[in-house]
């Protein structure tokens, strides 16, 4: 069973998006904001990332966007990472994060 999903997107040197999804509680915190999410939303997130490579590598550019997704489950931890190099459906992950239902948790 998945316990939590951590997503960090580093937009160059300064800006960072940090998302923490607590699966049993169906809540999501993105930076300072709290949201409720549905089971379907979580499954959609998992559907986006499940075939990702664990490491997409880092390009040589210093300010490239970098992502890290960590899925912590009872039977282990799965990490996905890339800097400047992204999975083909990476934008779908970012769109999904924008798509959370806004409600104070």
């Amino acid at each position: 069973m998945i316990q939590r999903i951590e997503i960090i997107i580093n937009h160059g040197a300064i800006e960072e998006t940090k998302a923490l999804i607590l699966c049993p509680e169906n809540t999501c915190q993105i930076n300072k904001n709290h949201y409720k999410v549905t089971e379907e939303w979580i499954q959609e997130l998992l559907n986006i990332i499940y075939l990702w490579k664990k490491e997409y590598g880092s390009d040589s550019k210093i300010d490239s966007e970098e992502f890290q997704v960590v899925v912590k489950a009872e039977d282990g931890i799965t990490k996905f990472h890339g800097k400047g190099i992204f999975p083909h459906n990476y934008e779908m992950l970012k769109e999904l994060l924008e798509d959370v239902y806004v409600e104070s948790a």
Partner: peptide, 13 residues
């Protein structure tokens, strides 16, 4: 090395 949720997703699809 892969976790259950990853295997489950492949099988589901």
């Amino acid at each position: 090395g892969t976790t259950d949720w990853e295997k489950k997703k492949v099988k589901e699809n």
